[in-house]
């Protein structure tokens, strides 16, 4: 099966139906292993048990950006190649990405309460993720504002690409703004010097969550294709009744 065959929704549907159970099982196994390892991981000498929040926070934060990347690729597919599945992929990804972004925000706040003493700190990273969340919501509002799917797809594709161009600028300006207003009050994670006891569960969780996204995304794409089929059948029914 080549990429061209996937452009056919029916072929895509049959492939999805075959692949989805395996993906779901793999996701479940990875997430269970990751959860077990996260539970067994030692406490951090500074952060104590709250370091365990990082095992779910970091994968969600990673996915919040990864999903926008996926949508940007889909947007190129919509605008440049007019690929029939690209619209579907972009639309299906938006709510899932918004959910992951929301989780990144909330787990970040829950980590911040014991560590910073407040749920919400106008920390540069939290703030950028908040703006990303607002942009996801705007994109979803755009999808919901128009009932013609292909028209909405092209508008959403342009917004997605403009957003992808703007996100680094927003990140940079928020960083700058943050250092201006509260210099270095924020405790930082260890960065690349992270100990293996933390790194391995984190990696397992990150891969597990990414697979979870792929699974959910494929399932949501399948729903979207069926929804379009329903729509076109309803239109045919309406035109038959009119005739």
């Amino acid at each position: 099966m080549t990429l061209i065959d996937l452009a056919n929704p029916t072929k895509f549907l049959s492939l999805t139906t075959r692949v989805l159970p395996w993906l779901a099982v793999a996701t479940a196994i990875l997430l269970l292993v990751g959860f077990y390892q996260a539970a067994m991981a030692p406490d951090d000498y500074q952060q104590g048990a709250t370091v365990k929040i990082m095992f779910v926070h970091v994968p969600n934060a990673w996915l919040s950006m990864f999903v926008w990347g996926v949508m940007s690729v889909a947007a190129l597919g919509t605008l440049v190649w007019r690929h029939p599945l690209a619209d579907v992929a972009a639309k299906a990804a938006a709510p899932i990405g918004a959910a992951f972004t929301f989780l990144a925000l909330v787990t970040g706040a829950l980590w911040g309460r014991p560590m910073w003493g407040t749920y919400w700190e106008w920390d540069a990273r939290l703030t950028s993720v908040l703006i990303l969340f607002l942009m996801y919501l705007g994109l979803m509002a755009l999808w919901r504002a128009v009932d013609d799917p292909s028209r909405a797809a092209r508008a959403a594709a342009i917004l997605t690409l403009v957003g992808a161009l703007n996100l680094p600028i927003i990140k940079f300006s928020v960083d700058w703004w943050n250092t201006l207003h509260q210099p270095a009050s924020v405790m930082r994670m260890g960065g690349p010097s992270l100990d293996n006891a933390f790194l391995i569960p984190l990696l397992v969780m990150a891969v597990g969550f990414t697979l979870l996204f792929v699974t959910l995304h494929l399932a949501a794409m399948r729903n979207e294709i069926l929804r379009r089929r329903v729509r076109s059948l309803q239109m045919m029914q309406a035109s038959q009744q009119a005739a």
Partner: peptide, 9 residues
């Protein structure tokens, strides 16, 4: 809703 996040910088 679409424009305001882009104007933050």
């Amino acid at each position: 809703v679409l424009v305001l996040p882009l104007s933050i910088p």
